[in-house]
Simulated assay, not measured.
Amino acid sequence: MIEERGRVVALDESGIWVETVQRSGCHSCAAKSGCGTGLLGDFWTKASQVRVSVAPETLRRIQLHDTAVIGIAENTLASGALLVYLAPLVTLVLGALAGQALGGVSGGELWAILGALGGFLLGAVCVRLYSHLQRNNPAMAPQFLRLEQGKPCVIPVTPLP
């Protein structure tokens, strides 16, 4: 199970909304203070909110600004990442090959470029369709694992304008 800590920003009748900060992988590197990639990762860090279902008996103990630990199965993350990255790439290459074959000897490069673009867009549409079909799949949703007591959440609370 891959875990992520976040701050509880809202409660509803059957779950919580957790705000997590998306960081680059550079935060675990020993050279992060002298690395430009780590600095850029800090610059582009952004917060996202996700809804997580919680059992009613546990929901009664949760309060706003608590630190919640949520998780997702490793195989779910790996298969999702494989689909998101590999499907557009494979369809791009297949589209380029099909375009080159359609273009023949003269003008094959332009057709290959157009085929690659079309293949990439087809792959992106397939990923979007798969995502839409899996939206209610409980295996794809993050799970509430536990509350961390006594540890303040390190995600800064931003005041509303």
Rank of each mutant, 00 (worst) to 15 (best):
residue 134 Q to S: 03
residue 49 Q to F: 07
residue 72 I to A: 11
residue 10 A to W: 09
residue 93 V to D: 04
residue 40 L to F: 04
residue 86 L to K: 01
residue 39 L to W: 08
residue 6 G to V: 06
residue 10 A to E: 05
residue 22 Q to R: 12
residue 35 C to P: 07
residue 65 H to M: 11
residue 92 L to M: 14
residue 43 F to Q: 12
residue 141 A to W: 04
residue 156 P to N: 01
residue 8 V to P: 05
residue 129 L to C: 11
residue 153 C to G: 03
residue 99 G to H: 11
residue 126 C to W: 11
residue 48 S to H: 05
residue 80 G to A: 06
residue 117 L to D: 08
residue 158 T to A: 04
residue 133 L to S: 03
residue 23 R to A: 09
residue 59 L to V: 10
residue 19 E to I: 15
residue 1 M to K: 09
residue 105 V to H: 00
residue 9 V to W: 14
residue 142 P to C: 07
residue 21 V to P: 09
residue 82 L to E: 05
residue 138 P to H: 03
residue 92 L to F: 14
residue 36 G to Y: 08
residue 149 Q to E: 09
residue 95 G to Y: 15
residue 134 Q to L: 09
residue 33 S to N: 05
residue 80 G to S: 06
residue 86 L to R: 02
residue 105 V to C: 00
residue 120 F to P: 01
residue 157 V to P: 02
residue 40 L to M: 14
residue 73 A to M: 06
residue 106 S to P: 00
residue 13 E to S: 05
residue 107 G to Y: 02
residue 26 C to A: 10
residue 100 Q to H: 15
residue 33 S to V: 06
residue 129 L to R: 13
residue 157 V to W: 05
residue 127 V to P: 09
residue 59 L to W: 11
residue 85 Y to F: 11
residue 39 L to S: 13
residue 81 A to N: 14
residue 44 W to Y: 09
residue 152 P to M: 01
residue 145 L to V: 14
residue 118 G to K: 14
residue 64 L to A: 02
residue 122 L to I: 05
residue 151 K to R: 07
residue 47 A to W: 07
residue 21 V to I: 15
residue 8 V to A: 04
residue 77 L to Y: 10
residue 126 C to P: 03
residue 83 L to Y: 03
residue 144 F to K: 09
residue 148 E to T: 01
residue 14 S to R: 05
residue 57 E to L: 12
residue 144 F to G: 12
residue 97 L to C: 00
residue 46 K to A: 04
residue 91 T to M: 15
residue 57 E to P: 00
residue 86 L to H: 07
residue 9 V to M: 06
residue 30 A to G: 07
residue 22 Q to D: 13
residue 152 P to W: 02
residue 44 W to T: 12
residue 112 A to T: 06
residue 55 A to M: 11
residue 137 N to M: 02
residue 106 S to W: 04
residue 50 V to M: 12
residue 90 V to T: 09
residue 18 V to K: 13
residue 112 A to Y: 01
residue 124 A to V: 03
residue 75 N to I: 10
residue 107 G to W: 11
residue 38 G to R: 03
residue 109 E to D: 10
residue 45 T to R: 08
residue 10 A to V: 15
residue 17 W to A: 14
residue 2 I to M: 08
residue 35 C to H: 06
residue 146 R to F: 08
residue 85 Y to K: 01
residue 12 D to T: 15
residue 74 E to P: 04
residue 40 L to W: 09
residue 44 W to V: 13
residue 154 V to R: 06
residue 112 A to G: 02
residue 102 L to D: 06
residue 27 H to F: 08
residue 111 W to N: 05
residue 77 L to T: 03
residue 159 P to K: 12
residue 88 P to D: 13
residue 117 L to H: 12
residue 32 K to D: 05
residue 113 I to P: 01
residue 124 A to L: 11
residue 60 R to N: 02
residue 134 Q to V: 01
residue 46 K to N: 11
